[in-house]
Amino acid sequence: MSIEQFLSEQKDTILTKWFDLVLDTYPPDTAVFLKKQDNPFANPVGHTIREGMGHVLDELVRETPSGQIGVFLDNIIRIRAVQDLTPERALSFIFSLKEVVREALRTASHQPLPYDELLAFESRVDRLALLSFDIFVQCREKLYDIKANELRKMTFRLLQRVNDMDEDQEKKPDPAG
């Protein structure tokens, strides 16, 4: 059995355990809400994160990746980049996938996987982590852009009027001749 087959077969169990580890990064009362509220509009954080993680898992086992993995990661990280989480805590969920898969392999009753397969899989998770750093930084930079743009918008019309008036002034013939 390949690691891909193993992950496909165990997807639901792995996803649930992986999601539980993400919930551990939130306070206990919040974790209960994020886990139990099914409505995607009443619980957009829990829903988006769980759905995104499911897609990420699918992509990891797919023979020909769709190229969408960045989008799915973005949906998750965009949320965690503005929550009260340190960067390490915000992105820890990527690394916890390794723990979950190792644990699942230990407890599953089947032939052990070749060591190389596991290492190759973990390298894929590492690349996922690198991609996540990119996305996290992009989200933070976006926040600063938005702050700067708000300030610009506040004064744009005012400056436009002043500039227009300046231009009008320049167009007028100089009374001194």
Binding site: Y26, P27, D29, T30, L34, A42, N43, P44, V45, I79, Q83, D84
Partner: peptide
């Protein structure tokens, strides 16, 4: 704010 932040 609770839904978005997760702060109890």
């Amino acid at each position: 704010f609770f839904i978005g932040s997760g702060d109890p």
